[in-house]
Each structure stands twice: as structure tokens, then as C-alpha cells.
Amino acid sequence: MFPFADRLPFKPHRPTVPEVIEFLTKNRVWRSFFRHGYPDTKRNQALLMQTNVFLHLFPVKVRVHSLKATYTWGLGLISFYLFLILTITGVLLMFYYVPAEDRAYQNMLTIMTSVNYGALMRNMHRWAAHAMVLGVFLHMCRVFYTGGHKEPREFNWAIGVLLLFATFFLSFTGYLLPWDQLSYWAVTVGSSLGQYVPPEEIMGKFSILILRGTPEVSQSTLVRFYTFHIVALPLAAAVLLTIHFWRIRKDGGLSGPYGKREEE
């Protein structure tokens, strides 16, 4: 089985799984990454939650009730995952997309037809965007109908309202980028609302210019929407999300039926 085995200075053998695991984890490199053992004891489970910067947003222990699938329906979590999917597919789309009037549409065709996995990335970006708008709206309804917005979570509810609007605007600014008839006219209709900002005589033209850069939807509009779509709004959303998650923890975890009840 092992050629030249007799000439080796040690006795070779086929390693067992525990030996492989031990080899991989009982060394200084692994130990420098993870400062705890496999999380099958309470101590290690607690250490896992506390030593990982992402998991540290969560508490070490959570209430049983907040884990019920029919309480949250996972909607906040799903919205967050969709946001991550959008970030990753969005970065990949940026490799092939230039926000120029005379190139954007051509870029879209290229992405859909000749870039490897380009169509998959664009489809996922589009469908996840729609799903996120819906998911966030449903999440808001879930929170309201279970009373999750009430004291002491008023502030987090307000952060949520801002997130709802950030989601709308992320989706709306992205809508223009393909530069096809659908996006051009949808954004023309949407941004034309700017002319009605009261007092209309003073603010109307001005708001349109702020939104579009020019009186009509044009190259300037495309650059504006692109910049908001890829930098300003995602950054704002990320900051708001950080506050949102941190606040859930500081407000004592998810809401639940822990108080007295009017009727039973």
C-alpha cells in the first residue's frame, strides 16, 4: 500500500477522521483564527457567539419564543439575505456596466448574452430586488401585527421606516440603469413628481433639476441614479441595518408574549 514504507523513518498509516480534524485544528494557525473548540459544549457555544465579530451582534442566549417560525416568518432575516445577494450580484454586474447613455443598453445586452453567468447575475439582481421590496413590506406588517413596534422598540421601528424608504429608493434608482423603454419611462413618470413639490412655482423646476440633473431624463440622470444606487444608498442602508440589528439586542431581543394579558 505504501511504497518504500520500510525506508521511511516513521511508520505510515492511513489517518482516521478524528486524526485529520486534530491535525487541522490543534495547531497555532487554526488556534489564531478560532479561540474556542468545536461548539458542542455550552462554553464553546458561548465563546463562538462572543469572539466572532458578526455573531457578536447577537446575544449568547435567546428566548425560545423568538425562534418560533410562525412568529417572525423569518421575514427580516430574508430581507437581509436579499440585501446581501443584491450586494454580491451588484458588484459583479458593475464589472460589465458603464452608466453612459450610449453604452448602458449595449452593456445590458452583453451581460444577458455573452458574459459567463451574466444573465444569471442580472436575473438574480432583478428578482432579489423585487423580492426585497415585498419582503420588507411584509416584515413591517409582521412587526406591527405582533406589536413588535411598541415600547421599548419605538426607535427601532422608526429606523425600520427609514429602511423601508431606503429600499424603495435603492430599487427605484436601479430601475433606470438598463436604459430601455421600461426604465426610461418609469423613471420619467416617477421623477416627474418632483415638479409638484410645493410651493410648485419655486420648488418644482428646482426639484426636477435635483432629481434629473437636466429638465429631461438624460445622461446626467443616469450618473446621478447610478451613484445613488451603488454608493450612497447602499451605504446608508448598511449603516441603518447595523443600528437596526444592534437595537434589537439592546431592546431586549425580539418582542414576545411576556407581559400580562387583557383577556385570555
Binding site: Q45, L55, V60, V62, R63, A69, I78
Partner: peptide, 22 residues
Amino acid sequence: PDDQVMAFPYMIVPALAVALGT
């Protein structure tokens, strides 16, 4: 309902399952 359990695995594992599902 207000009894507590360890976040790992009872919250983290379902959360990862939801990620895969999404």
C-alpha cells in the same frame, strides 16, 4: 415562552438554513 436557549445552535443553524433557502 421566556425560557432561554443557547443562540448557537438553536438560532444560528435555522438562520443559516433560511440563507440557503433564500
